[in-house]
Simulated assay, not measured.
Amino acid sequence: MQSITEMPVLLAQLLETVHHTKKMEKGTFLFQEGTPANEMYIIQSGILQVSKIIPDGRELTLRMCAAGDFIGELTLFSPKPKYTLSGRVAETGQVGVIMRNVLEEKLSQNLALSLEFMKWMSQQHRKTQAKFRDLVLHGKKGALYSTLIRIHNSYGLKTNDGVIIDLPLTNQELANFCGTSREVVNRLLSELRKEGIISINKGTITIHDLGFLKQEIECEECPVEICKVD
């Protein structure tokens, strides 16, 4: 999700509504799908994995959120709101807690802030729609390639040898982004390594040929702010 520090200045007013802070421990849930949604969060440190968990236990990761990201907006202005997704802590950190009713009141009283907030939410929906498009249209291989492109845009660090993904991810976590199994991801990553498209060193992925990944999924060259995992 887009960092709150990258939003229009007006939306920085959301920071004024932080009620208290909460520590989040790696491996625990900050919130879970189906539970009452009375709080929203601004991440101050750490990484939160926001996912949809389906009845058979499989997990589809929709985004990885880090410092500055705002979580929980989908519950606003809903009667008896419940979280529609789950937030699992991938890296220990801290969040600022915003009470839902306080933010709703602030948005109701400030038209300019409400308009900016709606524009921002619209962009988040575009990101989600683009991810689902890739999952549906391009199959398992396309889903992985698309995920690598998005992670590249969110966490890539350019080097002389390629772009290093500065985000520790297991193959299972990559599989969760793609809605597939770890075994499938293992096989596809192995094929990419053999072709020299990527390399992996101690779990860290370096992308050497981003153009190949884009060509394989017939990339529509969406704006970078849409083609991201955060």
Results as ranks from 00 to 15, higher is better:
199 S>Q: 10
173 E>M: 15
124 Q>A: 14
136 V>S: 08
158 K>L: 13
180 T>A: 15
124 Q>Y: 04
136 V>M: 08
57 G>H: 10
184 V>D: 02
134 D>W: 12
174 L>R: 15
124 Q>S: 08
142 G>S: 12
64 M>I: 08
99 M>L: 14
90 A>R: 14
132 F>G: 02
58 R>W: 04
131 K>N: 07
196 G>H: 06
94 Q>D: 05
104 E>Y: 04
84 T>S: 14
71 I>T: 04
126 R>Y: 06
168 P>L: 08
118 M>H: 04
103 L>H: 04
141 K>E: 04
108 S>H: 02
175 A>Y: 07
151 I>S: 07
166 D>K: 09
155 Y>K: 12
137 L>V: 00
84 T>D: 11
164 I>H: 12
80 K>P: 01
102 V>Q: 10
158 K>C: 05
172 Q>L: 14
130 A>H: 00
88 R>A: 08
139 G>P: 04
129 Q>C: 12
198 I>C: 13
160 N>Y: 09
102 V>P: 07
60 L>N: 01
83 Y>R: 13
72 G>K: 03
84 T>Q: 11
109 Q>Y: 05
59 E>A: 14
146 S>Q: 15
127 K>G: 12
123 Q>L: 13
196 G>Y: 14
79 P>C: 04
189 L>Q: 11
195 E>C: 03
79 P>M: 05
53 I>C: 07
83 Y>L: 09
60 L>Q: 01
182 R>P: 00
176 N>W: 04
165 I>L: 14
86 S>A: 13
179 G>Q: 02
68 G>P: 00
181 S>L: 08
164 I>Q: 06
174 L>D: 00
148 L>C: 07
63 R>N: 06
110 N>P: 00
150 R>W: 14
104 E>G: 03
71 I>C: 13
79 P>R: 01
122 S>W: 08
166 D>W: 06
152 H>V: 05
135 L>V: 05
147 T>E: 02
194 K>M: 11
184 V>C: 12
62 L>M: 11
155 Y>I: 00
171 N>T: 03
145 Y>A: 10
74 L>F: 12
161 D>L: 10
109 Q>W: 04
180 T>P: 09
170 T>Q: 08
139 G>W: 11
64 M>A: 08
